[in-house]
Amino acid sequence: MRADQVRKIFDGYAVLRGISLDVARGELISIIGPSGCGKSTFLRCLNFLEIPDSGTVDIAGVTITRTGGRWTRQEEDAAHRLRAHVGMVFQSFNLFPHRTVLDNVMLAPVRVKRMPADEARAEALALLDKVGLSAMATRYPDTLSGGQQQRAAIARALAMRPDVMLYDEPTSALDPELAEEVLSVMRTLDNEGMTQLVVTHDMRFARAASDRVVFMDGGEIVEADDPDRLFVAPEDPRTRRFLRSVL
C-alpha cells in the first residue's frame, strides 16, 4: 500500500500538505502526533471517507490519483473497489445499535458481497471466537462493554477480508484494562501478517508493537522510523518536543 503526495484542504486551510508513505505487506505502523495535526484526516483519505484534493493512493493494486476537480462517478467506483481491501475501526466503535453483534458482523458480507447467509454466519462466528466474543453473538451492542464493542467492530471489519486495517484511536475511549483486550487482538492480527495502520496516543503500544512509527505535525510527516530509533533518538526537534510532552 502506498500514499503519494496526498493533500487535503478544509475551508482554505491545508490540513494535509503532501503526505507520502509506503507500507509493506504485514507491517504494523503507528501514527502519532499532536491532536489536530491531520492524523485522522490522513487515515480517512486512504479509504476515501475524505476525498483528497490531490495525490495518489494505491492499495492492493487499486490506484486512485486525484488532481483536483470534482469527485466523479468513475472515481467513486474505483474507491468502491479500493475499499474492498480496507477495513476501518473507529474511536467510537460505530456498531449498528439496531442489530445484534452477529448481525453487525454478517451484514456487509451478505449485503455487499452477496455471500450466502449460512456461510457468512459461520465466518462471523469464527471471527467472534477469534476476538473472544463467542458468548456475545446474540447480544445487542449497547449491552456490551466498550472493549467488547471495539473487538466486535474489529471482527466486523475483518469479515470483509481486508488486506489493510486502519485504526483511528481504537483505544482512546477505553479504560487501560479494556484497551489491553483490543490491543492484544491487534497483536494477534500482526502475527498473522495483517497490514495495519494505527493512529494512537498509546506510546507504549506504538513502541512495543509497531514495525515503524510515523510522527506527523502540521499536516506533514516529520519523521518515520523504527520505534526504537524514533523514541530513543529522534532526529527532528519537533519530534523531540512532542515526545517530551507525552512521555
Binding site: N47, L49, H80, R83, A84, V86, G87, M88, F90, S92, N94, L95, F96, L107, A108, R111, V112, A153, R156, A157, M160
Partner: peptide, 12 residues
C-alpha cells in the same frame, strides 16, 4: 459515524 462505518464496510 453510522454512515461512515457502513461506507467503510464498502456499502454504497
Amino acid at each position: 459515524g453510522q454512515i461512515e462505518a457502513a461506507i467503510a464496510l464498502n456499502m454504497t
